[in-house]
Amino acid sequence: MTDLLKGVEKASRAVKIEVSTIEQEALARELDDFLQWLEPMLELNTNQAEQVLFSHGAVNVLREDCPRQSNLAELQEAAPNFAGGFYLVPPIIE
């Protein structure tokens, strides 16, 4: 369980989600249950199988490389803090 606690801590840091100690412990227990639940899948012999990247083997469709109308101003309006062409965040250089 200690490893799973560390795993949860590391994963929550990676996805930048605040997790309290109590929630971390609960998530570690749930993760333990989840990994045990996955065991039948792990036991499956997949030696002859390939990794799938799309559900029915379709390939990406490329569109014409030509300029399209953009609604950049509307997208920027959706930002909570935007000014002078920049998304505003706290200073990152001390």
Binding site: L38, M41, L42, L44, T46, A49, E50, Q51, V52, L53, S55, H56
Partner: peptide
């Protein structure tokens, strides 16, 4: 886990 799941996906298809 993840790579195994992608292969199971192939078998399901």
């Amino acid at each position: 886990y993840y790579r195994q799941a992608l292969k199971v996906w192939d078998m399901v298809r």
